[in-house]
Amino acid sequence: MNQAIRSSLLHGAVIVILAAMFFVLPEYHSGNLARILVLALFAMGYNVLFGYTGLLSLGHALFFASGMYGLGLSILFLQASPLLALVIGLISSVIVSAVIGFLALRTTGVAFMIVTLMFAQAGYLTVLFFGKYTRGDEGFVIQRAQRIFFGIDLSQPLPRYFAALALFAMGLCLIAWLVHSRVGKTLIAIRENEERARMIGYDVQFHKLLAVIISGTLSGAAGAAYALLFGYAGASFAAVQYSILPLLYVLLGGAGTTIGPLIGTVFMFYLIDISSEYTNAYLLIAGLVLILLTLFAPQGIAGLLRKKLSWLP
């Protein structure tokens, strides 16, 4: 079998298994898995920039939050329908990522990390500053009546799970297509050797900007979906922790692989979920995993698997 068929088979199998999971798992875990799928979409978006383009951002919470608040605020104040609110959420994340990309890409390396961190921090503080509308840390609830999408009540477990899965599947297909497209190959060329990519004649700056926008929009879609499916938007989703989490998911799962983000999100979500039963200092686990990964397995789980199965996309 050639590689394209193998990887589409793999992706198809992942989606089928995930669909079956809803009927196999007890309700608590299928609820968790719905959250994981949305967060995995966030991680896949992060992976476009970090894994494929080689740009390490510390500010993706800003993109997640711009989708989340784009959707949440338009439902809250404009009584927008879920579809319209979703579109507004996506547009706001496109605009935010384009502006941030345009500015931050004037820097490279460590400066890029700090600049994205600072912009995201400014975004978080802005959410707090307009606490009158956003309700700051406390956040606001999106009522069940406002979450009915073409007659489907997204607050119910079954539609919610399959809505999350549909979104995840779309993201996965998009990424699988992207990495084999001309644009995706150019991004990888930039990651491997930026100077050489420029010398060959690629417009490096334009492709990097494109990567930030694709990455930011996927993250924004995840943020909007999170608010719509779970009916809540709060400032904690804009805080620095939500910039670190996708990095953690991608590093753990395997940067620059299509299914790595999902693997990383599942592992990390359950590590934190289980440890938070024992202690309120559950972020300790996040810290330890970060350190251990940088020390011993910078290529992540899927990266380790790829050593055995070289065809892994």
Partner: peptide, 13 residues
Amino acid sequence: IVATIGLLYVIQQ
């Protein structure tokens, strides 16, 4: 940077 973010969480928590 990634490792010191890890250290941050470990020390703080």
